[in-house]
Amino acid sequence: EMEYEEITLERGNSGLGFSIAGGTDNPHIGDDPSIFITKIIPGGAAAQDGRLRVNDSILFVNEVDVREVTHSAAVEALKEAGSIVRLYVMRRKP
């Protein structure tokens, strides 16, 4: 069973403070093209906020749908998102 969360982060000097993997051209798990959080960087915006978790998958960055995009398109969406970034994420319920 999945749960969904909308997380708004303010981009810090060091960016959003997380790493991603995945994409249609580089699936992270099997042939699932989802964009997954692979690392939360200590002291970064995501770590300070505390809600984003490793293995969360990002569905939307602001209004941009990143469910079926290449890795570089997801990176671009995050880069272009401005200083306030709304992430709509999905994760397995614990």
Rank of each mutant, 00 (worst) to 15 (best):
Q48A: 04
T8L: 08
V61W: 01
E63I: 09
G23Y: 04
S19T: 01
G17M: 13
N13M: 03
G50Q: 13
G43T: 10
Q48G: 14
F18E: 00
H71S: 11
I84Y: 14
H71I: 09
I58V: 08
L16W: 10
G44M: 06
V85C: 13
N62V: 00
G15M: 06
E68D: 07
Y88W: 01
G17S: 12
A46C: 10
N62T: 03
A77R: 11
L87W: 00
V69H: 15
I20H: 06
P42L: 12
G23M: 02
Q48K: 09
A74L: 05
T70P: 12
H71A: 08
E1R: 01
R11N: 08
E1Y: 03
G22F: 04
G30Q: 13
K39N: 15
L59S: 14
I40F: 03
L59D: 14
I7S: 01
S19N: 05
G22K: 04
I37H: 00
P42W: 05
N55M: 13
F36T: 10
D25W: 09
I35E: 01
M2H: 01
K79P: 01
G15H: 04
D65A: 15
N13W: 05
F18D: 00
R53E: 02
D56F: 01
F36D: 10
E3F: 15
V66P: 00
G44A: 11
Y88I: 01
P33D: 12
L52Y: 01
D25T: 13
A74M: 09
L52N: 00
A74E: 00
L78A: 02
V66T: 05
E63G: 08
V85F: 02
N13Q: 12
I58H: 00
T70N: 10
V66H: 02
G43A: 11
L16K: 03
N13H: 08
N62W: 05
D65Y: 06
L9S: 01
N55L: 12
T8G: 04
P33N: 10
T8A: 03
P33V: 07
V85E: 00
V75M: 09
E1V: 02
E80G: 10
I37W: 00
V54R: 08
A81P: 15
D65S: 13
E3D: 11
A47E: 08
V61C: 06
S14M: 13
G17D: 15
